[in-house]
Computed example of a mutant assay.
Amino acid sequence: MNLKVIILGVFLILIIWIGYVAYAAMTAEPHVEAKWGNVNEKTTEIIIDASLRHPLLVPASINELSINFTGVKVAWVKEFNYGATKSDMSLSLLIDNYNLVKALINYLNNGQNGEINVILKGKVLGIIPVNKEIKETISENVLGYLNFTAESREYLNGLFQTPALLGTKVDWAGERNGKALLIAHMRFYNPNNYPLPVANTSFDIYANGIKIGYGSTEKAVVIPAKGYATINVDTYIYENALPKVWALHVQNGEKSTVRAEIFLNLKLLGKEYNVKIASYEETIQTNIMEELNRMLNDMLKG
């Protein structure tokens, strides 16, 4: 057989293949859907399914797809199902819940600043390397959401009025004995005509029925009559409890119940009173998967 004919035939096949790939890519109209996979205390799985109108006929593989946050590897590809002759593909992303907590601690240690680094390494046609790295800096005041308040109320049939909690400012103070340490600066107003000596301020925090933290003061404070005082409360968060709370949050349809109980130990008229000034119970609903799907579809629309 003439060598020129063979070369011409191969060249024509290549042109037809490139034309088909271009056609398939332009008319693919992909449908992408992300959903929660298996979720437990250790890991969270996110499954991304995609369907095309036509197979692309382009062999491709992923050697590495990982996500690092504040220098900690928090997620990676568990499985990538793709075939050049198939119109459906899926990707399974695994998140290490404990590493995610470590990354968050680093984020707080760095003044609530951190960098997300996405690394992609793979091959197209089995020989063409693909190396992509995306970096994004995040700076969000997550501690600003922790603002507790409480109104004043009568206690013991009007014996006295409890101080009003006007607001709470929370600062990061590092780690201590395997627990995250926050300083809650609680601003109180005393509506009584006499000062209120506060021997101790304490509170407990629960999420999905799990105690995740507690707080207490180290010294007594006197709130003057018709006056104000700021009480600093050392607040400890159990880091090891957070992955389980997160798993329950996802398993409950991205819904969590958070409860906080705040107590004041008051010394009044020679007696001590342990007064609960506030008891919060709030349902927190997130839409992480909904937002992820929205982002994926926006990316496809260009």
Score class of each variant (00 low, 15 high):
A164Q: 13
I105S: 11
G144R: 02
E151N: 06
W246A: 11
N287R: 02
N252D: 06
A184C: 14
L292E: 03
T162M: 08
F188W: 09
V258R: 04
S202K: 10
K271A: 11
G270N: 12
W17A: 05
K123I: 04
L65W: 14
S139I: 15
L269F: 13
I95C: 12
A50V: 12
I210G: 03
R153S: 05
K86Q: 11
V58A: 05
L91W: 10
Q285I: 11
M186L: 10
Q112N: 09
P197I: 02
P191N: 05
M295N: 10
T257K: 08
E281L: 09
Y145D: 07
L159F: 11
V77T: 13
F263T: 03
L52K: 07
L269P: 08
A260I: 04
I6E: 07
K169N: 13
I47L: 06
E290H: 14
L248C: 02
N274F: 12
K73W: 07
L264C: 03
I183H: 11
D204K: 04
V118G: 01
A173Q: 15
I62W: 12
V5Q: 12
P195D: 06
L156Y: 11
A207Q: 03
N131T: 01
N117I: 08
V101A: 05
N297W: 06
N38G: 04
K121Y: 11
I284T: 07
V124S: 00
N147K: 14
V142T: 02
Y206I: 07
S256T: 09
N99Q: 13
K86N: 13
G302Y: 01
N157K: 10
T70D: 15
G213E: 03
E33W: 09
G209W: 01
G71P: 07
A24R: 05
M289N: 09
V77H: 11
A241M: 01
A247Q: 03
I119H: 08
N232S: 15
L8A: 15
V72T: 15
T201F: 05
V245A: 00
G126C: 09
H31K: 12
V130H: 03
K123D: 10
I128R: 08
I231D: 00
L93N: 11
Y189W: 01
V233A: 00
G174H: 10
G83N: 05
E282Y: 13
Y98R: 06
K271L: 10
S66H: 09
F80R: 04
H185G: 02
D49W: 01
L108I: 00
A199Q: 13
D171Q: 09
S87V: 00
A22S: 09
L242S: 01
P191V: 08
Y98A: 15
K132D: 02
A75M: 13
A278M: 15
P197Y: 00
P55S: 01
P243F: 04
L165V: 05
T149K: 06
G114W: 02
A50G: 14
V124L: 02
L300T: 01
G213R: 00
